[in-house]
Design a protein around this nucleic acid. Sequence first.
DNA 1: TATCATAATGAGAATCGTTATCAGTTAAGT
DNA 2: ACTTAACTGATAACGATTCTCATTATGATA
Lengths: 146, 146
Amino acid sequence: MSTAIDSHSTKDWTGFAEQQISEAGLRHSSPRQKVIDLLAGQDCAVTALEMDARLEGVGRATVYRAIEQLEGLGLLQKVDLGASAYGYEKVDPSGHHHHHIVCDSCGLVRPFEDESMETAIHEVRQSGFRIKGHEVTLHGTCQDCA
Amino acid sequence: MSTAIDSHSTKDWTGFAEQQISEAGLRHSSPRQKVIDLLAGQDCAVTALEMDARLEGVGRATVYRAIEQLEGLGLLQKVDLGASAYGYEKVDPSGHHHHHIVCDSCGLVRPFEDESMETAIHEVRQSGFRIKGHEVTLHGTCQDCA
DNA sequence: TATCATAATGAGAATCGTTATCAGTTAAGT
DNA sequence: ACTTAACTGATAACGATTCTCATTATGATA
Ligand SMILES: [Mn+2]
Ligand SMILES: [Mn+2]
Ligand SMILES: [Zn+2]
Ligand SMILES: [Zn+2]
């Protein structure tokens, strides 16, 4: 079942991304498409350098540029995993998302979801601020490191 | 009143930090003490390079080393403010803490607290993980940027 | 107080992730 | 086909962090 959901959501995101790219006046290009395809097939955060390494024939600058553009269009989310580099993961147009729990001892990252936590966060108000999103990271120790 | 609370908590943290440093088998030194004092007088995150700039006669390497040690002793917390460098802020031994809301357009950072959000987060369970802490960042637009 | 082991230091080199340059290429509207 | 501007990869530049190393300072011990 996870397969069906993933491939569905992946297809949606890819199409949505291509559409947004086009509407933003950007052109279609093979290198950037490769970046999009890589991100579409990933369910959690990937590093810019990881993308560069995996994408044969795509310049590093192009990877960073694509990330910048996709992030600017709200299609990509930057996540801090405590490591030396940021990770990037696609933002589902449906608004559905997850957060991360990381093992401070080995660096293992695992995505998680919690409905009542989401509710509590959505109820937070801050005067003088229009809240548009949030980021949560749980820290702890994984089974292997315990 | 904010003054009284701050100076009290600041004093507590400084003393606690010095004690922990000592118990860890580390020696007392003037440069590291300056780092501790700077952090004690700060209620929200400061950058390593900011500390270095403000501390006359303290080498940059020493600042980074002090941060590493204090963080290792659980006296300091690294926070991601979306900028190019991490910020560091003292961790109150009482467990009392705050989180941050940042304006994605101008970078303004404001600390906030929310009790029911804290409760919801503390109720989160993840199998195979012993959760020891959490980090929350709210994103949005501040009044000036709206 | 003199000795000693070693923690701690600052200057600077090295590394890492990211951003800026730039000359050449390519997509797409006319 | 022509034209314009987006797009590209190689590579230089950059800021933040870590590493190296020769020297100094701390604090326990004799
Ligand atoms: Mn959420
Ligand atoms: Mn909290
Ligand atoms: Zn994720
Ligand atoms: Zn803060």
